[in-house]
């Protein structure tokens, strides 16, 4: 703790208090009255519990499938480690949890579940989509009405709530069965990778599988590349890429908001 701007011990006290609230072993900071029962350990423990239990509950609410996959006890213990290592940096709790997926990558006790970080990414994307800016989805009819020679140079604007999570694991299947089914079932026999598309055209957050290579198309479109060149790039990069299926999925999910013509700038 450097300078004390108010010339009193408040900054010092808050420094000690903040550290004692977050650290694992219970150690009551100096400066707290201890001449009255209950003990100051119990009194200070209420604040520690409030801070940690409320943050753990917030994480459980935004990562319900991760919690279901590992169980409540494991999740809470894991969340407490995360909270200690990555406490929130903003008073807006809706922003808390962005680092959870990458934390899981490094969290050894969960290494037996290598798909867990990508499930967390999918759940985080749903959460971000829920709170992201609103925009009206464009109907594919508007694209179909364009003259054929205009299609190559049309730019498709992506919805601010849209996210794509490509994974070597069947994350949409794992997420879906653990969200909707009382008894989760193992996804496809060979556990092939899936790419998730998250959108929120209006109030509902939608999750679906993106067809092969469509994530490459989205990546091109996101950079402002026109449809013709973006489709070329996706075809070259992925043999199984089918433009019709990709466009039907993207428009159907409300991932596209604007169609514009013009030179790239």
């Amino acid at each position: 703790m450097p300078a004390q701007p108010d010339g009193n011990g408040l900054a010092d006290l808050q420094h000690r208090f903040a550290h004692a609230v977050l650290q694992a072993p219970l150690e009551v900071p100096d400066g707290i009255r201890h001449d009255v029962r209950p003990t100051r350990e119990r009194r200070f423990g209420v604040y520690r519990n409030n801070v940690k239990a409320s943050l753990a509950a917030a994480l459980a609410a935004r990562f319900p499938v991760v919690e279901r996959l590992v169980g409540e006890e494991f999740f809470t213990a894991m969340a407490l480690v995360f909270i200690e290592q990555h406490p929130p940096r903003s008073p807006v709790l809706a922003e808390y949890g962005a680092a959870f997926a990458s934390f899981l990558e490094e969290f050894d006790p969960a290494a037996d579940l290598p798909y867990l970080p990508d499930i967390a990414r999918l759940e985080w994307s749903r959460y971000v989509a829920f709170h992201s800016a609103d925009a009206s989805a464009a109907d594919i009819g508007r694209l179909a009405e364009l003259p054929p020679e205009a299609l190559g140079s049309v730019r498709l604007g992506l919805h601010p709530a849209m996210a794509v999570i490509a994974s070597p694991w069947p994350i949409v299947s794992v997420w879906s069965t653990n969200t909707h089914d009382a008894t989760p079932e193992a996804p496809a026999a060979d556990w092939t990778g899936e790419t998730a598309l998250v959108t929120r055209p209006h109030l509902d957050v939608l999750v679906q599988r993106l067809p092969p290579g469509a994530d490459l198309l989205v990546a091109e479109l996101a950079q402002g590349i026109a449809l013709g060149a973006a489709a070329d790039a996706a075809s070259r990069a992925h043999d199984g890429f089918d433009l019709a299926t990709a466009l039907a999925t993207l428009f159907g999910a409300g991932a596209i908001t604007t169609l514009s013509q013009g030179s790239s700038s």
Binding site: Q14, F17, A18, V21, Y47, N50, L55, P87, P88, P91
Partner: peptide
């Protein structure tokens, strides 16, 4: 505190400062 948000309403000592 120092950019970390402790999600609770923490108490203050009632002093002039």
């Amino acid at each position: 505190h120092e950019g970390t948000f402790l999600n609770d309403l923490l108490p203050l000592p009632y002093t002039e400062a």
